[in-house]
């Protein structure tokens, strides 16, 4: 009886306070070279966290390592998602636990249609699977929100997509998969002004509805005007060298990274 009580208390506390993505003293190697040299960060549901840093500071490496890319070796540290250690889990398990990565350069896959790919991905997470027809209805609705042409679903995954179309397809996946923690690696690069607005609205909609945490890597302030970041972290040479609120991002936009790096 007592055991049950304790257990239910633990579960409740887990429900309230453990909902976060924590990375603790993370070290990451690529081809034998250490790129991430001890990073500790926490991301909270519903919040927008911006990662900034000059080229080569390790932003994409961190994103890929968090998602579980086999080329990025975690040599030390932990990744804890809602209290569960996922440091050693494969990418598909991390995705099932609620992690998502919007790729900076999405790869092209011949012969697999967007519709087939997306349905397989969405159904993997679901107890009750969508039929082809049911999924088609859902997909059409989500594509309309992002102002995507309906022919899109019949095309092969990212094949022959323009830069902007690829980014739109990534956000489409975000809105379909509704993850708990979404890492967006430069969702705005190579995208025109109007499209940034459409993408931002799409991201905002699902963030608000699902209490999603957004971890965004960007060089531009335009997307931040829509997403209104809560926290800003500056990455340099594989370490976090400064943290702050939206003001820090604005300062960097004006003055560049020099001021922060030389501090």
């Amino acid at each position: 009886m007592r055991i049950t009580l304790i257990k239910s208390l633990t579960e409740r506390s887990r429900g309230n306070t453990m909902k976060k993505l924590e990375i603790k003293d993370l070290h990451v190697e690529v081809d034998g070279t250490e790129i991430i040299k001890g990073i500790t960060l926490t991301f909270h549901p519903g919040k927008v966290h911006v990662l900034m840093g000059p080229n080569g500071s390790g932003k994409s490496t961190l994103a890929n390592a968090l998602m579980g890319h086999p080329k990025y070796k975690i040599t030390k540290g932990q990744i804890i998602l809602d209290g569960k250690d996922i440091t050693k889990e494969k990418a598909n398990i991390r995705a099932k636990e609620g992690l998502f990565l919007s790729f900076q350069y999405p790869t092209e896959i011949t012969g697999v249609t967007m519709a087939n790919f997306l349905r397989t991905a969405v159904n993997t997470k679901r107890e009750k699977k969508y039929s082809i027809v049911e999924f088609h209805t859902l997909l059409k609705e989500k594509m309309k929100e992002l102002q995507m042409d309906s022919s899109f679903s019949k095309r092969y995954v990212n094949e022959g997509f323009s830069g902007g179309e690829k980014k739109r397809a990534e956000i489409l996946q975000l809105t379909l998969l509704e993850p708990k923690y979404a890492i967006l690696d430069e969702p705005d690069s190579g995208v025109d002004r109007d499209a940034i607005e459409i993408l931002s609205e799409g991201i905002e909609r699902v963030r608000k509805n699902k209490e999603m945490a957004i971890i965004i890597i960007t060089h531009y302030k335009r997307i931040l005007e829509y997403l209104q970041p809560d926290e800003v972290s500056i990455l340099y040479k594989g370490k976090i060298i400064a943290q702050g609120n939206y003001e820090l991002a604005k300062q960097i936009e004006k003055e560049g990274f020099e001021g922060v790096i030389n501090k």
Binding site: G68, N92, P106, G111, V112, F117, T124
Partner: peptide
């Protein structure tokens, strides 16, 4: 990785990519 990052198991990912290659 693109498939597994979306939650699809590795063996299913391979299956889809191989079939897609011949499609």
């Amino acid at each position: 990785f693109y498939f597994t990052a979306r939650g699809i198991e590795e063996n299913i990912a391979k299956q889809m990519i191989i079939a897609g290659f011949l499609e």
